[in-house]
Design a protein around this nucleic acid. Structure first.
Lengths: 197, 197, 197, 197
DNA sequence: AATGAATGAGTGTTCATTCAT
DNA sequence: AATGAATGAACACTCATTCAT
């Protein structure tokens, strides 16, 4: 079974390798040569599968988006109550950070620093991802306040607040090189949204 | 006199030009040639003043740190009450963002994405800056709760919360390409720290 | 029936497409990929039909030679007298030039610029074509002076002169981006060979 | 003296080397690497002196234009009469061809085959060169018919005819791999313009 | 203090061709 | 007969840095 996985098709290996390298070293700092060496692929084979380096990045980000959102949804679903499910967002953040060691932060946030023009395909993917995240958070908030007579505006605002706490945790962790920002964000959320029944 | 001002110190011109370019285009995306062309300086002159490109960046960040902290302190001081002064942190954020149009975010946060190793001189400067910011916020929080019998731990925690909101606002603005995250952060802070007497 | 015509022989489609591209863009500037994309043919199919890119070029040139000489002969034949038939050579040149808009010149002459070594298969084809042209011109000259007691040497020399005028017209048109060189050549020929009875 | 010439400045060495290689092998067939290897120059040094490969070509062509026109004018001046001077144009062509062995043709004409678009800087230089040549030929023709009551139109037309013969000779020589086209052109000119007093 | 010239190592991308099916 | 996948070598060009003056 693992042997089969070994001979996995080139394109997939390329995406996996690049995803890792882009995340760990940054987009510009990662050369095509580094990628193809790590993936043990000929340079021309790379360009058979992707038109440009940026195309590869976009494919990587899209795949990462699918994985992250899937993982997160699964992780959240294990919470028994709406409040628990919101708390689990932060637990999940803490776990993801520990996975990537000293916390390299959010792959999408990082790309915003390397692609400075507000337009462009990469920034589009980043926005797409963050909007999906905000929608997910809105669902959680809506469930939390179900039947409490909140207007849609109030729910929307609360979702924005929750999103802000998540983004703050994601941004501050790599800077501080530890996970306390995530815990701080969680506790703030627990108090603000009254999550500890 | 104007002639002297015209022929402003080469080194200073270099730092100013680089600060702008690094911020707008990113560190790796900005080449030495681009900098010296913009600053109208010979290439060898560049290496006369700075040993490496990274040295220049560090000088830029240090200068920016001094300016930002000075500006922020001045801006805050105009607030009449401790609560007002905390609110003014967010007003200041909103104003800085509007200056740079679509918001290019925090120059220090951005560098974290381009310098991935947790150690290294650049990351050191970023941490230094963020710690200074947190100390400033601690002072504001301490003033806000003065004489209310809060323990140092409680104050420290509140400062961390405030810092988190600021970081969230800084990170989310460039992603969303607008300033609502800053306002959301401010309102959340106003409620959480009871800033609207 | 139309379906058969639609699915015209792959090889033929390849030759037609390449003939056009080589002529319009040059040999080296035309990549294999460009050809197979335009011909909507798989890359491996290309190498099934032709061993190398140069082989394709030679096939293209040979086919073009056949077409051009056939066309030219037909066009000339419509002239009533030997003198008229010589004049029609230049009329034909002018028409061919107008077909390809701003005049791309002689496909064979062009290849001489891209294949610099005097030997080699491509140059061989070019020479073959030009010699065939000279023979045709010799026939026309011989007919023009039939029964006037000219030696073979004199006829040969007159043919060389006519060939020179044709080559001059072909070479000068693309450089000048217009057809006046063809008319100049024709008028010079009309005077020199006394073609206006 | 030769030792001084050895250490000639890089830029000049680059232009000389490239002029030779572009002429012998063609523009596209000559890689930057080939040029810098032959000139014994670092790649970055190349781009210090020229922005692009095409810029180098243009510099080469401009320099060649100056040299050729200078040489030709000098060579022509040695003729005693206007008629002699016209004949010397063809003598000069024959000598230049023999210099470059099997005749590589006109460097400017060759470039027309590699730069197919009628516009563009290279084609501009080619046109410039050919126009200068035509002006020179006009002067020679005007001197030949001085005081014979020819209109300007008649002179212009005669110059165009002479130009056509020159272009024909230049184009046909490399194709035929010998110099008879030049002699044919000369003889035709001698008869047509009555150059053998 | 200031500079123009020179560089080795690297960039992302394209070339014509071959392989396995 | 026809193909999608894979490749080594070459492409034009840029990088941050150093040297001689």
């Amino acid at each position: 079974m693992t042997a089969t996985a070994e001979k996995t098709n080139l394109r997939e290996r390329l995406v996996e390798t690049a995803t890792k390298l882009f995340y760990e070293n940054g987009y510009r700092a990662t050369g095509i040569n580094e990628i193809i060496d790590a993936a043990e692929i000929a340079k021309a084979s790379f360009y058979h599968h992707f038109k440009t380096k940026e195309d590869l990045l976009i494919t990587c980000l899209q795949k990462r988006h699918d994985q992250i959102m899937g993982d997160l949804r699964q992780y959240i679903a294990k919470g028994d109550t709406p409040a628990q499910r919101i708390r689990r967002v932060f637990f999940w953040l803490a776990e993801s950070c520990q996975c990537s060691g000293t916390s390299l932060g959010c792959a999408f946030l990082n790309m915003t620093s390397e692609f400075r023009e507000a337009e462009g395909r990469v920034r589009e993917v980043v926005k797409w991802h963050k909007n999906a995240l905000r929608e997910l958070l809105y669902e959680l908030i809506a469930a939390r306040y179900l039947g409490q007579g909140k207007t849609e505006d109030e729910l929307s605002n609360a979702a924005a607040e929750l999103y802000l706490l998540v983004e703050g945790a994601l941004a501050a962790s790599p800077v501080q090189c530890c996970t306390w920002p995530i815990e701080t964000a969680r506790k703030l959320a627990e108090g603000h949204f009254d999550l500890m029944e």
